[in-house]
Simulated assay, not measured.
Amino acid sequence: MKKVHNVLTEISVLIKKIETDYPELYQFLDENPITLPTELHPKLDSNTLEDYLTDLKSLLKHHIENHIKSKK
């Protein structure tokens, strides 16, 4: 299991990449229902952060496969 600091660093780098290289996708990050906690005070542990990182990677991969390739 990765340490929280490493996961947060990966999340930050990926979000910056999305913001810079895929601005059309960046606008949806705040609205992604997968990332919205349903609890009033969610527990943010390493597993939660790794799940969020996985969701971000999936979102980017899906966007690239379905939007970028269709423009070629």
Rank of each mutant, 00 (worst) to 15 (best):
M1A: 10
K2L: 06
K3S: 06
K3C: 03
K3M: 05
K3A: 02
V4Y: 04
N6E: 15
N6F: 05
V7F: 00
T9H: 08
T9A: 10
E10P: 04
S12M: 07
V13Y: 07
L14N: 03
L14G: 02
I15L: 15
I15V: 10
K17H: 06
T20Y: 06
T20N: 14
T20Q: 13
D21K: 14
D21T: 04
P23V: 01
P23G: 00
E24T: 10
L25G: 03
L25Y: 00
Y26L: 08
L29V: 03
D30P: 08
D30Q: 12
E31V: 09
N32G: 11
N32P: 12
N32K: 13
P33R: 00
P33T: 02
P33D: 01
I34R: 14
T35R: 15
T38D: 12
E39Q: 13
E39T: 14
E39I: 09
H41Y: 04
K43C: 09
L44P: 04
L44F: 07
D45N: 11
D45H: 08
S46K: 11
T48I: 04
T48L: 05
L49V: 00
L49T: 02
E50S: 07
E50G: 05
D51M: 13
D51F: 13
Y52F: 13
L53C: 03
T54K: 14
T54W: 12
D55P: 06
S58M: 14
L59A: 09
H62L: 14
I64E: 07
E65M: 11
E65W: 13
N66F: 10
I68C: 00
I68P: 05
K69G: 03
K69F: 11
K69M: 09
S70E: 10
S70C: 10
K71Q: 06
K72I: 15
K72P: 14
